[in-house]
Write a protein that binds this DNA or RNA. Structure first.
Length: 828
RNA sequence: GGGCGGAUGGCGGAAUUGGUAUACGCGCAUGCCUUAGGAGCAUGUGGGGAAACCCUUAGAGGUUCAAGUCCUCUUCCGCCCACCA
C-alpha cells in the first residue's frame, strides 16, 4: 500500500481519534513523577491558523512528545486569548455578536489544531472570554486595588482615533497604534492604571536569574525597564529662590551648563511666566506644544522649538545665573521634567543652542581636538576625556569625575544621587466592549467602590443589549441595565465602570490557570500550581519580548506577594521562534503572500508539513517557506513508509555481538550514532533541523545495507534500525510513526509511551579511522589507520608515503602535530 | 544615535566549538526502469584548469602548526529601543 494522500489522511485521522479517545495527553499531577510543562503563547482566535502558528506549535509539540518519551509527566495545554478588538471590529462590520464570532473562530481553530496532531490535553482548554475565566481577572484586579496597585488617575493618555480607545505606552509603536498603525494622539482622561513600577527593581534584578532566556529578550526588557543612575541637581530660581530640580546622568558636565530647560507641562512654568511681558507669546507656545500629538513632537528630525521665560536659574556649583527656557524636546514624563543644558557635550542641547544662539562652554577635553574653540564646534563632544573649566575637578577623567562631583554635591546639599526608571505604570482601561469589565462601582456617597468578591463576576452584558457601533466612548456606557446598579457599600444608586480591561491583562496569568482550569473556587489551585509551575519551556514570537513577558513576570511576582505561589519567575526557559517568510518577506495577509497550512495538509498531510517546517531552519532563525521543501519531506516519509512495507520482516532478535560482520557493525554504528545525535540535538538547543538530517543519514545507511532472504541476523539488525528510525522520528511526525510502530510489532497504545532509546557507546567505535595529513596546514593526503594508533605509528605511516615525500621535497620536518584520529600536520 | 544578531554553493542550511569547509535536503544534469507516478533507482553537481594542482566561508589585516570559527578595522543586511537628559 503506497503512502498516498488518501492513506495519509486515513492514518492521521485514525491516530488523532485514538489520542483523543484514550486521553493519551491528559496530564495529572503526580509528585512521584518528574513534571515538564511545555507551553506555547496561546493564539488570538482569528479562525484560521497560519504558518507562524504551525511553526510555533510544531516546535512545542516535538519538545512535549520528546519529554513524554523520556518518561516525564508532561503538561501541554492550549487555549485562546479570546477578548480583543478584532472580534469587536468583525462584529461591527458583519452586524453580529462578538461572542458568536469568537466562539465560531475557536471551533474552527480547534479543529485545525487537531488536524496538526498536536499533543494537547484538550480537557484543559480555556478561553479568556469565558466568564469562568475572566471573573478571575476581576478578582485579581480587586486584589491589586486592595493593595493600592490598581488606581485611577487623570492623565494625558495615548489615544487611537481609529480604534477609539486608549493605548498603553507599550502598545504605541513608532508613535502609531500597534494594531491599526494609525497615528496616536494625546487625550486627557480618567483611567485605570496598574502600578507595575512598584516592581521595577525586582523585574530588573530577576532577569539575571533567567539565564536560559535569549540574551536579546533580556536586553530588551532591561532597556524597557530602563534604570539609570544620575543626580538630581538643585538649581534655584534666582528671583524667588524656589528650587528647580533637574535630573542628569552626566553630572561630570555640570560646569558646562549654560541654560536650563523645562518641559512645557512643568508645574513651575505657570509661576515663572505669570506677569511676564511675553506671557501671551509663551502661553501660545505652550498651547501649541500641548495640542501637538506625541508622534509629531517626538519626530527625530524635527527642529527643536523653545522659548525664553525671561527668568534665570542659579547653578549651585558655581553660583552662575543661567537663562530658563521652555522647549518641546524636554519631556515631563521622564526624570524631573527639567534639564540642565550642556550644548558642548549633548547633541540635542547643541542643536537647540545653535538655533537660539545660546552660550556654550567646553568642560570635557576631546583628546583628538584638545584646543577646539566653541565657535568651531560642529557637534557636541559626547566621548570620554578630562575635565576643564571645572574648578577643583579640572584634570579629572570624566568617568571618575561623575562619582566625585556627585559625592561633593551631596555633601554640600547641592543635589542628590538618584535613580530614574523608564518603565511607566500600565494603563489598562479600554473603551471597548469585548473585554473584561473592570469590577468597580461609582457611588455619589461612597466614591470608588470595588465590587465585592462574592458578587463577582461582573458579567459582560450580551451584545444585543449593547450598541456596538464603533462610535467614540465605551459601548457599555450606553447600556443602562449594565450601568445602573446599587452601591455595594450603602446600597444607594450607583453606576458601574464602563471601561474594560486591556487584553494583556488576560494573558498575564493564563499559564497559572492551566494548572487547574476548571476550579471555580479560586484563581488557581495552589497545590496544582506548585506542582506544575514554573513553565519549563515557553515558546513564542519575539514580538512579545517586552509586553506580554514583562506583564506575566509582574503578575507572577504579585501572586507571590499574595502568598499563592513561592517562585518569582513564570517561565524557566524561553524559546523565541523565527518568523516564516515567503520570497524574503514576512508572510502576512496584507502582503498577500500567505501559504495556507490547511491546503498543505490537504495535499501532503500534517506530518509532511511538520517535518518540512522543522527541517528547513533552526527554530530561532527565520524560515523561508518553499513548496519544494514540503515535497522533499513527503518523499522522505514515503521512503520510511516503503522501507517498512518492503523490507521489514518479523524475526526473533537474539543476536550477540560476536555474530556481526563489518557491514553489520557499520549499520549498528550508524543506528547508535543517530540515536546519540537526535537525542543531543533535541535536548541541547532544539536543533531539529540537524536531528532530522541525522535520521536521513541513517536512512541512507539502511538503504546501503543488503539482506539476503533468510539471513536472520541481518534481518534482525535491519528491523532494529527500522524501528529506531520510527521511534526517533515519532516526536517530529507522530501519525506515520504510530502507524509504522504498530506495523513493526509495537504493542503500546501510543508511541509516546515507548521509552526514548539510549545509545551504546561501544557501537560507535571504529576499527580504523581516517587521518588527514597536512603539510603546513595544507591537505596533502588521507590515511586509514587503526583506531588507537600512537603518534609514532601514524607518523611512520604518513612519512613513508611516496606522495607525502614528494611534497616534502627533502626538506626537514620541523614539527609534527598530531590530533588523535583526526589530523596530522607536518611543519617544514 | 544606542543595543543585539547576522553575512558559508543556484537555494534552505551543516561543520565534533580552533583540526578534512559545503553534512542533510531542495534544485539541476546524465542515464536506467516502468500498467505514466506527486514516481522510483544510479551517477554527478563550489569555482578555475586537459592535468598535476590552484582558488574559495562579505572585504582587508592579524594571532596560530592549523581560522568559517579567535582578535582589529571596513562594508552590507535584519531586529529592538530612541529628543530618556
Amino acid at each position: 500500500m503506497p503512502y498516498t494522500t488518501h492513506e495519509i489522511h486515513r492514518i492521521e485521522e485514525k491516530w488523532q481519534k485514538i489520542w483523543q479517545e484514550k486521553k493519551i495527553f491528559s496530564a495529572t499531577a503526580d509528585s512521584q513523577k518528574k513534571k515538564y510543562y511545555v507551553l506555547e503563547m496561546f493564539p488570538y482566535p482569528s479562525g484560521k491558523i497560519h504558518m507562524g502558528h504551525v511553526r510555533n506549535y510544531t516546535i512545542a509539540d516535538v519538545i512535549a512528545r520528546f519529554r513524554m518519551m523520556q518518561g516525564c509527566n508532561v503538561l501541554h495545554p492550549m487555549g485562546y486569548d479570546a477578548f480583543g478588538q478584532p472580534a469587536e471590529n468583525a462584529a461591527i462590520k458583519h452586524k453580529t455578536d462578538p461572542a458568536k464570532w469568537t466562539y465560531g473562530c475557536i471551533g474552527q481553530m480547534r479543529s485545525e489544531l487537531q488536524r496538526m496532531g498536536f499533543s494537547y490535553d484538550w480537557d484543559r482548554e480555556l478561553s479568556t472570554c469565558d466568564k469562568a475565566y475572566y471573573r478571575w481577572n476581576q478578582w485579581i484586579f480587586s486584589k491589586m486595588h486592595e493593595r493600592g496597585l490598581a488606581y485611577r488617575k487623570a492623565s494625558s493618555v495615548n489615544w487611537c482615533e481609529s480604534c477609539q480607545t486608549t493605548l498603553a505606552n507599550e502598545e504605541v509603536v513608532n508613535n502609531a497604534c500597534w494594531r491599526c498603525k494609525s497615528e496616536v494622539v494625546q487625550r486627557k482622561l480618567d483611567q485605570w492604571y496598574l502600578k507595575i513600577t512598584d516592581y521595577s527593581e525586582r523585574l530588573l534584578k530577576d532577569l539575571h536569574h533567567l539565564e536560559p532566556w535569549p540574551s536579546r529578550v533580556v536586553a530588551m526588557q532591561e532597556n524597557w525597564i530602563g534604570k539609570s543612575y544620575g543626580v538630581n541637581i538643585f538649581f534655584t530660581w534666582k528671583e524667588i529662590g524656589e528650587r528647580i530640580t533637574v535630573f542628569t546622568t552626566r553630572v561630570d558636565t555640570i560646569f558646562g551648563a549654560t541654560y536650563v530647560v523645562l518641559a512645557p507641562e512643568h508645574p513651575l512654568v505657570e509661576k515663572l511666566i505669570a506677569g511676564s511681558p511675553d506671557e501671551k507669546t509663551i502661553r501660545a507656545f505652550i498651547e501649541k506644544v500641548a495640542n501637538e500629538s506625541k508622534s509629531l513632537r517626538m519626530a527625530g528630525d524635527k527642529k527643536k522649538e523653545g522659548i525664553f521665560t525671561g527668568q534665570y536659574a542659579v547653578n549651585p556649583v558655581n553660583g552662575e545665573a543661567i537663562p530658563i527656557w521652555i522647549a518641546d524636546y524636554v519631556l515631563m514624563e521622564y526624570g524631573t521634567g527639567a534639564i540642565m543644558a550642556v550644548p558642548t557635550h549633548d547633541q540635542r542641547d547643541f542643536l537647540f543652542a545653535k538655533e537660539h544662539n545660546l552660550p556654550m562652554r567646553v568642560v570635557i577635553q576631546d583628546p583628538v581636538n584638545p584646543d577646539v574653540k566653541v565657535s568651531d564646534l560642529k557637534q557636541a563632544y559626547e566621548g570620554q576625556g578630562v575635565l576643564v573649566n571645572s574648578k577643583q575637578f579640572d584634570g579629572t577623567e570624566n568617568e571618575s569625575a561623575k562619582r566625585k562631583i556627585a559625592e561633593w554635591m551631596s555633601v554640600n546639599k547641592m543635589g542628590e544621587v538618584t535613580v530614574h526608571w523608564r518603565l511607566r505604570d500600565w494603563l489598562i482601561s479600554r473603551q471597548r466592549y469585548w473585554g473584561t469589565p473592570i469590577p468597580i462601582v461609582y457611588c455619589d456617597q461612597c466614591g470608588i467602590v470595588p465590587v465585592p468578591e462574592d458578587q463577582l463576576p461582573v458579567v459582560l452584558p450580551p451584545a444585543e443589549d449593547v450598541k456596538i457601533t464603533g462610535e467614540g466612548g465605551s459601548p457599555l456606557a450606553r447600556c443602562n441595565e449594565f450601568v445602573n446598579t446599587t452601591c455595594p457599600k450603602c446600597k444607594g444608586k450607583a453606576r458601574r465602570e464602563t471601561d474594560t480591561m486591556a487584553t494583556f491583562f488576560d494573558s498575564s496569568w493564563y499559564f497559572l490557570r492551566f494548572c487547574s482550569p476548571r476550579d471555580d473556587k479560586e484563581v488557581f489551585e495552589k497545590k496544582e500550581a506548585a506542582y506544575w509551575m514554573p513553565v519549563d519551556q515557553y515558546i513564542g514570537g519575539i514580538e512579545h519580548a517586552i509586553l506580554h513577558l514583562l506583564y506575566s513576570r509582574f503578575f507572577t511576582k504579585f501572586f507571590k506577594d499574595l502568598g499563592l505561589i513561592s517562585f518569582d519567575e513564570p517561565f524557566a526557559r524561553l524559546l523565541t521562534q523565527g518568523m516564516v517568510l515567503k520570497d524574503g518577506e514576512v508572510m502576512s495577509k496584507s502582503r498577500g503572500n500567505t501559504v495556507d497550512p490547511d491546503e498543505i495538509i490537504e495535499r501532503y498531510g500534517a506530518d509532511s508539513l511538520r517535518l518540512c517546517i522543522l527541517f528547513a531552519a533552526p527554530p530561532e532563525d527565520q524560515l523561508e517557506w518553499s513548496n519544494g521543501a514540503v515535497d522533499g519531506s513527503w518523499k522522505f516519509l514515503n521512503r520510511v513508509w516503503q522501507l517498512v512495507e518492503q523490507r521489514f520482516v518479523p524475526v526473533v532478535d537474539n543476536i550477540s555481538a560476536a555474530d556481526l560482520d563489518q557491514e553489520d557493525k557499520d549499520l549498528e554504528r550508524e543506528r547508535n550514532a543517530a540515536i546519540k545525535k537526535v537525542t543531543e540535538d533535541i535536548s541541547q538547543g532544539y536543533k531539529f533541523n540537524t536531528a532530522v538530517s541525522a535520521l536521513m543519514v541513517l536512512m541512507n545507511a539502511i538503504d546501503q545495507y543488503r539482506v539476503v532472504t533468510g539471513n536472520a541476523t541481518r534481518q534482525a539488525l535491519l528491523n532494529r534500525a527500522i524501528r529506531s528510525v520510527i521511534v526517533l522520528l515519532a516526536p517530529f511526525t507522530p501519525h506515520i510513526c504510530e502507524e509504522l510502530w504498530q506495523k513493526t510489532g509495537g504493542r503500546e497504545e501510543s508511541i509516546v509511551k515507548v521509552s526514548w532509546p539510549s545509545f551504546d557507546a561501544r557501537a560507535l567505535t571504529r576499527d580504523s579511522v581516517q587521518v588527514v595529513a597536512q603539510i603546513n596546514g595544507k591537505l596533502r593526503g588521507k590515511f586509514q589507520v587503526a583506531s588507537g594508533s600512537s603518534e609514532e605509528e601514524v607518523r611512520e605511516i604518513i612519512l613513508a608515503d611516496a606522495k607525502i615525500q614528494e611534497f616534502l621535497a627533502g626538506k626537514p620536518v620541523k614539527r609534527f602535530i598530531y590530533i588523535a584520529g583526526k589530523v596530522a600536520n607536518i611543519v617544514i
